[in-house]
């Protein structure tokens, strides 16, 4: 059987197991049988348990799953677009752009996370802010990519953009209220519990939309592996394709950043994990496998975050670099032996 089907089947199985574990494990001990009963609609005797499973664990698990898929896929699209294996939403400053948008809405708009998370208009304004911030940075990066030929230099330019966004955020923080700053700080550490059950359908809808758009881009993405000149010769409209990629990556990064905070390393490292698993850079199989791997990795991260149990939750951004950075270092050390680098 083909390698991608084996990997796909294995990852799907792993996701199911991880989802169940994420639902079963938490601060409060709930017997697994009761968790299942609650999920299939049978009310258990314990109202607290019902609440915990439905209002906390379920949205958190689903959010982790979609967040990982979204970030991993946007990382893959960026790496192909810039033909740079070290591109990713956090490296290129797209995360920071989205954060700036969120900061603007939260701190200047006078709202806090609390108001933002409980009304649909708050949800939409945070989302819009993140999307505008992310696409702004992406547009600047794309513009710079026409001026800067070297990929390494372009990455550095992206890091600089990230710094500029961060310094504007610092300024906004300086002029903001203590409460606003606090809620922004908490948001900035990243977590998967920011999406409530009421918002969950919206979150899932928007990420699914982005993921579907990315699947429509598989054909031009494959052409772009050959470089711009060859892709143009194959009938790919580079300008238009780049715009589609910009919008799709913008949507995916923005929706995740708006609700989970600026999550680092997933977008950068997961496409490499998927390539190492498959051995190919053909997006027909690479993109679905990246999506599944991303979901697995974030579900694992979420499990690690809730490990301390009653002592609280570990910030997400303390966990993702531990998962991601070793992968990148491995890839860099072995790049001569890894075929997709050559």
């Amino acid at each position: 059987m083909k390698r991608e089907y084996i990997c796909g089947g294995f990852l799907t199985l792993l996701i199911v197991l991880l989802v169940l574990t994420n639902l079963a494990v938490g601060t409060v001990d709930i017997p697994f049988r009761d968790v299942l009963n609650i999920l299939i609609g049978k009310e258990s005797g314990n109202v607290g348990w019902n609440f915990i499973v439905w209002e906390t664990r379920f949205p958190q698990t689903v959010t982790a799953l979609f967040c990982g898929a979204a970030l991993a896929v946007s990382g893959l699209m960026l790496q192909t677009t810039f033909s740079n294996p070290l591109a990713g939403p956090s490296i290129l400053g797209i995360n920071s752009g989205a954060s700036l948008g969120v900061a603007f809405v939260m701190l200047v708009g006078g709202g806090s996370v609390a108001t933002a998370t409980f009304s649909l208009s708050g949800f939409l304004s945070v989302l819009l802010g993140a999307f505008l911030g992310a696409t702004l940075v992406l547009a600047v990066i794309l513009f710079l990519s026409t001026l800067i030929r070297s990929n390494v230099m372009l990455l550095i330019a992206g890091i600089m953009l990230g710094y500029i966004a961060s310094s504007v955020i610092s300024l906004l923080n300086f002029f903001s209220t203590a409460e606003g700053v606090h809620s922004y700080m908490v948001w900035g550490m990243g977590n998967f519990s920011g999406v409530s059950l009421e918002q969950l359908p919206w979150f899932v809808l928007v990420t699914s939309l982005g993921l579907m758009l990315s699947i429509l881009l598989i054909k031009p993405l494959n052409a772009m592996l050959l470089g711009q000149n060859y892709a143009e010769n194959l009938g790919v409209n580079i300008q238009r394709t780049r715009n589609y990629l910009l919008i799709t990556t913008g949507i995916l990064t923005a929706v995740v950043t708006a609700f989970c905070g600026p999550v680092s390393f997933i977008g950068l490292a997961v496409p490499h994990m998927a390539r190492l698993l498959l051995g190919t850079s053909n997006h027909n199989s690479l993109l679905p496998i990246t999506l599944l791997t991303g979901a697995c990795v974030t579900l694992m991260c979420n499990l690690i975050c809730i490990l301390p149990g009653e002592y609280g939750i570990i910030p997400l951004n303390a966990v993702t670099p531990i998962m991601g950075a070793p992968v990148i270092i491995y890839v860099i050390i072995n790049q001569r032996r890894i075929q997709y680098f050559n």
Binding site: S83, L225, G227, N229, Y230, S281, N282, Y340, F341, N342
Partner: peptide
């Protein structure tokens, strides 16, 4: 028109 260039591309990962 089909073209063949000399530029190195990142296609090592394709068969």
């Amino acid at each position: 028109i089909g073209i063949v260039l000399t530029e190195r591309t990142q296609i090592g990962g394709l068969t």
